[in-house]
Computed example of a mutant assay.
Amino acid sequence: MRIRLLAAAPIAALTLAPFAAADPAPVTGVELNQPAGQVVAVEAKFNLTSDQDTAMRELRKLRGDMWDRNVAFDGMTLRQAAAKQGLKTRQAYVDAAQYDAGLSRVALQRGAEATQFFRHERPYNATCTANCGDTGTATYKGKAGAGENLHSAANMGKAMQDWGYGEVNDLVRANGHFNTGNGHLHNLLDPQLKRYGFASVVTAEGEASVTAAGWTTAGSERIEGEQNTVLHRPANGRETPNTTPKKLVFGGSSPRDIVAIITAVLTVLSVLSALYKFVEPLINQAR
């Protein structure tokens, strides 16, 4: 099973190009980048409450550990970079990272899109009129994330480990500068990024985990508990828009889960076949 990870660097606060807000997606409330009729509906399951608990626990642990190690960050030490933002103690730096329900909605919307189009770009078709693929168009009440982490498994604990401790050596080698090998960790440690939203989602098209990070809050309206619902993503290219949901199967299993189940069944059948060929002569003799 191949795991994929992608990190987008934080966007400079003063260089965001203006864009026209489109209709909000049902459930997430996050603005689409094209009219509401130009969407694909997919059955989905997720639990943002569980994701929050897991991700914030792991984020605080990671920030504390990296403070203790005083790793390189942007050409200086992490403690020096934090002090520039007024965070002069370990506790202040760890506590500066706060959960944001609005950014979790953004992360959920981007997760619904990334299960089919795993890249730091939103799907879109010819009806999109401005900054079509820009992830900055994924706004909740006008607020967007600044940095984004993507993981191809809907497992927030694994995602946080891979985004975090899995990239420490790359961060050190780069003297703390953002690159493709450490970008997820850089986004999680950045003292300027103080608000975080998280979502792991399984849809009829696949699965993904997402972090949306920002400077300020995008909202406090939470989506609580385990959800089995329909999410909507922008239709892409010449894809036909369809509001009839694509169905989750086998009790909400993702396509990856289904492949794993089929593979396991075929493996068991293969083993049983080999075993039968071995014991068949003994059975015949016993007759």
Rank of each mutant, 00 (worst) to 15 (best):
I261F: 15
V27L: 13
A208F: 07
F118D: 05
V279L: 09
N125Q: 06
L62S: 06
A204E: 06
G252Q: 02
L150Q: 02
T77M: 10
L6T: 00
K88D: 10
N187F: 07
V39T: 15
A138T: 11
L171I: 08
L185W: 06
D190M: 05
A36P: 01
A260H: 11
A212Y: 00
T89E: 08
F250L: 14
M156T: 14
S220F: 08
A9R: 14
Q161Y: 10
F198S: 00
A96Q: 14
K61E: 14
S152H: 03
S273N: 12
L48H: 01
S209W: 03
Q161D: 09
A36K: 12
R69F: 09
A114I: 05
C128P: 01
H184L: 03
L188C: 09
S152N: 07
V27E: 11
E239N: 08
A101Q: 13
K84C: 03
A235S: 15
L269E: 10
T263D: 15
G145T: 05
P10A: 13
A174G: 03
G225I: 11
G145A: 15
Q227K: 11
G64F: 02
F19M: 04
L78G: 03
R122S: 12
N33R: 08
N228P: 00
A274L: 15
N236L: 07
N179Q: 09
Y196Q: 04
I262R: 13
L32T: 05
G183K: 02
A83I: 03
M160Q: 06
A112R: 00
T28D: 03
R238I: 10
V94D: 05
I223E: 03
F46R: 01
T139G: 04
K88G: 15
Y276P: 00
N125T: 05
A235N: 08
Q227P: 00
A174D: 11
L275Q: 12
Q80W: 01
T203F: 04
E239C: 09
S209D: 04
P26C: 11
V210M: 03
A260C: 04
G219A: 10
M66A: 05
L6G: 02
L269G: 14
T77P: 07
N169E: 15
E280F: 11
V42T: 12
S253C: 13
L32I: 08
S209I: 06
L269S: 08
A264N: 14
H120D: 09
S50C: 01
